[in-house]
Design a binder for these strands. Structure first.
Length: 423
DNA sequence: TCTGGGGTCCTTAGTCCA
DNA sequence: TCTGTGGACTAAGGACCC
């Protein structure tokens, strides 16, 4: 192969660590009585999806992203759990800390996955597979959770290698192999080329269809295509990217601190909403939640985007860019409402979302004219953040959402991670 | 079989301005 | 003054990831 795309030194020094059935395994750890049973974590309502399935559940064909209703049909006696995102976040942090004991170069991909660059920890010897086994053992010892690790000469090959190390499902639970798979330097193309093109990072259903249309089924087929042909079929950036990957080239470094590009919140409703008045309280609640998260991370945003998915699943976005960056719930809601008011809700709104992008550092924020001339909404926001810090996120919320006798749950957001509770 | 929520990145098209 | 061009920015949609 061409050596230009491997890390400059071609060192076997990239690890990809992926927890096995993470959410389900965390649940089994705190509820050992469920061991051996098919366990499904995810949305429990009619519009929910599966977030994770234990290996016993996978035996029935259940996998993540599958509609919960379908999973229930496939295995009616499975134990369905709503999931506890906050807890998984805490466990994730502890696991990332274990990895950081090995190398500071850890790039979390999600709660249950990370890349490690261990080239600095090798001390001149080819110890990466050993380090991989050590990481795996440490996570098992300290967290009582299993993971699989891929080792290769770059990130993308390490990620593919992990798949080879994954346990396989059986009626008696996961059957473990070594848990570590190594793609040795010099064997990259041998490993890569027989695989279906769909396994490439960045090839989803749409791209796979296009590639099939030009006779490309395997990664080897893809590597044999002239780059220009791929660029004309898939676009310049995607074509170039896939051409590199199919030849085993991936120069991306492990990035420890990734800049946040957007913060948003969206929810699928248990029933479609058909008037703007029905949507408005949700809009205000979501704008408020997004604003709190912006302030929590000390960033402000300039572009407000709303997302609307109608009953027939057509999805539109509308966005507006304001001259001065904002982080207040009221300001965000105002812009979102302006955009919402121009839409026709009569087909039924299934999902609504608000997000902020074009983020800027909030620690150097400029005061608006209002803030210079008197008490501002930002002062009120600071008080709200303080109250929530002390008494919880549901302790206070926008007045527009409160009615006498109402439960405080109206202020809460982010309770449903994998779909509404019930239809 | 009716499809969540958190994101990122890319493409295309329109507008403004130097 | 008119026209052309290219860059920066904005908006919208789509594909993809976990």
């Amino acid at each position: 192969m061409s050596s230009s795309g491997r890390p400059p030194d071609g060192t076997l020094g990239f690890l990809h660590v992926d927890m096995d059935a993470f959410f389900a395994s965390v649940e089994l750890r705190r509820r050992p009585e469920l061991r051996g049973q098919p366990v499904v974590v995810g949305g429990t309502g009619d519009r929910g999806v599966v977030a994770a399935a234990s290996y016993e559940a996978r035996l029935y064909g259940i996998h993540s992203a599958m509609p919960s209703t379908r999973a229930r049909r496939m295995c009616p006696h499975a134990v369905f759990l709503p999931g506890d995102h906050a807890h998984y976040g805490e466990v994730s942090e502890e696991i990332m800390a274990i990895m950081k004991n090995v190398t500071p170069l850890v790039e979390p991909l999600s709660l249950d996955e990370a890349f490690l660059d261990v080239r600095g920890a090798l001390h001149g010897t080819d110890r990466a597979p050993e380090i991989a086994a050590e990481v795996r053992a440490a996570i098992l010892r300290e967290q009582r959770l299993t993971c699989s690790v891929g080792v290769a000469t770059n990130k993308f090959l390490a990620k593919l290698a992990t798949e080879e190390a994954k346990p396989s499902p059986s009626e008696r639970g996961p059957v473990f192999g070594s848990g570590v798979h190594v793609v040795e330097a010099g064997t990259e193309l041998e490993f890569l080329h027989p695989k279906p093109v769909r396994e490439l990072w960045g090839v989803g259903p749409a791209t796979a269809r296009k590639l099939s249309g030009i006779g490309v089924e395997t990664i080897g087929d893809l590597a044999a295509q002239p780059r220009a042909r791929l660029e004309s079929a898939l676009g310049k950036a995607v074509g170039l990217h896939l051409h590199s990957l199919s030849n085993g080239r991936d120069d991306r470094p492990v990035e420890v601190d990734q800049e946040l590009k957007s913060i948003g919140h969206e929810e699928t409703f248990a029933r479609d909403l058909s008037t703007l008045d029905d949507v408005r309280p949700h809009l205000i609640r979501m704008a408020d939640a997004v604003a709190a998260r912006l302030r929590n991370r000390s960033v402000l945003g300039r572009t407000v985007t709303i997302k609307v998915r109608f009953g027939d699943f057509t999805t539109i976005t509308r966005s507006i860019t304001v001259p001065e960056p904002i982080d207040g719930g009221r300001a965000i809601a105002l812009e979102a409402e302006t955009m919402l008011a121009r839409l026709d809700p009569t087909p039924g709104i299934r999902l609504f979302g608000v997000s902020l992008s074009q983020l800027v550092d909030g620690s150097v924020r400029q005061l608006t004219l209002d803030e210079v001339t008197g008490p501002a909404w930002s002062d009120a926001d600071a008080v709200i953040d303080d109250i929530r810090d002390r008494f919880g996120s549901s302790a206070i919320g926008p007045a527009a959402l409160s009615r006498p006798g109402d439960g405080i749950r109206r202020f809460e957001v982010g309770q449903q991670q994998w779909g509404p509770d019930e239809a």
